[in-house]
Design a protein around this nucleic acid. Structure first.
Lengths: 138, 138
DNA sequence: TTATACCCTATCGGATTAGTAGACTTTACA
DNA sequence: TGTAAAGTCTACTAATCCGATAGGGTATAA
């Protein structure tokens, strides 16, 4: 399941990318347009800012704006920041590897290889899709 | 994330499929061999029985056994029974479709098409992988 | 008749998710 | 210089889900 957090994050990014000018947009505007709880969106945008994708400006006339071009922002990156690992099981995660604590041995685990396959496929999509692609296709 | 439920379910099925004879195997044996909480496994096997994949025999010498051949059990089916929808978002689920309650319009949703793509890819893997495949590859 | 093993219901603690509240800081502008 | 607009930060909450557990009930082989 995709969390709302990630979904909202992607929506907010595409919203910003679709604008003509890259001027600060208040959270309230994004929240209203995209039908997102404003307070929740605050924390999401903050994460994206700390990760270097968004800039912000305080005070009147302030808001959030993109720091990168839409075609430079991969879905995979956004997903990892907001959602976490792309793999369905920690023991096949590239960026968040962890041994499954219920599994004595990965080599003999019947699910392991299957999950690697799923990971590779999903990864291929997420790595090859940018915010720009999302805008074009939709 | 893949739940333990599904993971355990797949492990239990492969365990049964790997045996020479298709004779009833007590839950306790499967649980111990595969390192699974026995009580939890009970409910999982019960679900698989009700779905028609396993048969059971009560009393001494009883246990669970496969009702289908290993190459007739698709991962996709097991997944749907134990985990639920394969899609990451309800609005692109084939078997569990539901409108996303936060999304006013699917047609203009920026995430929708992306998630269809992910679903199709994952589905392809799960539909084309059987318990037998899992055994062979591992 | 007894031990074995599945069947069923209920419950529980912990984690996570989505959202809320409220105080604080920075800034534009009248 | 005061005020309203806007982001920042911390804390809290309600709801849900997950994995596991408890315990009694029922069927059956020996």
């Amino acid at each position: 399941m995709l969390s709302r957090k990630t979904k909202y994050g992607l929506k907010a990014l595409t919203f910003l990318a679709k604008r003509e000018e890259n001027e600060p947009v208040p959270i309230s505007v994004i929240a209203e347009s995209e039908n997102i709880s404003q307070k929740f969106l605050e924390s999401i945008l903050l994460s994206m800012r700390k990760a270097g994708y968004l800039g912000s400006k305080k005070g009147k006339g302030g808001g959030y704006y993109l720091l990168k071009e839409a075609d430079e922002i991969k879905v995979a990156e956004v997903y990892r920041i907001l959602e976490g690992p792309i793999a369905m099981v920690p023991c096949v995660s590239l960026n968040f590897y962890e041994k499954c604590d219920d599994c004595p041995d990965e080599a003999t685990c019947s699910v392991h290889k299957l999950m690697i396959q799923v990971r590779d496929n999903t990864l291929k999509i997420f790595e090859n899709t940018t915010i720009e692609d999302i805008i074009i296709r939709a």
